[in-house]
Design a protein around this nucleic acid. Sequence first.
DNA 1: GCCTTATTGTGAGTTAGTAATAATAAGTGT
DNA 2: ACACTTATTATTACTAACTCACAATAAGGC
Lengths: 160, 160
Amino acid sequence: MEHFDGQEAWAAALRAHGRRVTKQRLAVLAAVERHPHSPAESILAAARAELPELTAQSVYVVLGDLTDLHMLRRFEPPHSPALYETRVGDNHHHAICISCGRVEDVDCAVGHAPCLTPHWNPDAKPMTIQIADVMYQGICQECQQAQQLPPHSPSQEKEK
Amino acid sequence: MEHFDGQEAWAAALRAHGRRVTKQRLAVLAAVERHPHSPAESILAAARAELPELTAQSVYVVLGDLTDLHMLRRFEPPHSPALYETRVGDNHHHAICISCGRVEDVDCAVGHAPCLTPHWNPDAKPMTIQIADVMYQGICQECQQAQQLPPHSPSQEKEK
DNA sequence: GCCTTATTGTGAGTTAGTAATAATAAGTGT
DNA sequence: ACACTTATTATTACTAACTCACAATAAGGC
């Protein structure tokens, strides 16, 4: 298997954050890396491929802790459980298809980090902004085509 | 009571959308208008002030339907139930204090609707974007001050 | 290898909803 | 004003996605 270097990199990052290196954490990190934008349940399923005795509660605990450490990023699309990814620190955004739920990464829209300087209303008390989570919601090309098909030639290209 | 005109305006809007004008819907709309950025539970409590027999399930149904009609706007901050507001159609954003949960409205950052044109990665399939939900997360001034107090003069200004 | 304490597992409990159906009442026509 | 049709609401389950308390286990320093 070629996941030795990834393994080591994650282990080093964990130690750097003062965390013990456990197979549960490594399995979760590997699963998130292989399946970006996944909910806890899918991460559990993926991680169990290499660590069958892993429990759901451990996944929740590990995901929460690693998110607090900023080793993982968590975001919550509307009408969806929380999703996780390993791409952190670059202030990128997400586009979600409201029809099929597919998620795409989108680079920060306005250069570096202008998203972090909102225009406050005169009467608002400004906050110190740490992150700007931008969630684009729309319809992906596939779902658009599926909807535009004439009503009497249905359910043929819906497959994947 | 001076909520006659508001009452009538909501009633007209409901009719315009082909919905019947019920006291439940009017109570929910009035409650959301008076308590912007509120979760379903708070809206229920507020609406019951004028309509005690209203049920939680009705509030969920009404909120969902009115949101679909775009008479209400719904957003889901992280670690929070969905919040509702009557300010719709102006593509404004929200800033949430990660410490106390307070929510502020923020006008659209870059003029009119540039938030609606993300920069797609070369290999991504662009979606047709309908809304861009921008969620600024930071720390409000009050929470900031509370945190910066020296550790040995605690819990005095936390009260509201 | 042993020992301390972080980490994980076990099992129950909670929040924020959704779903199915029966009861009610808005608005239309008379 | 009255009846009637059907949207709307109430009632009652039921579920998803977590959270919490505590017992069992195992990392990593000695």
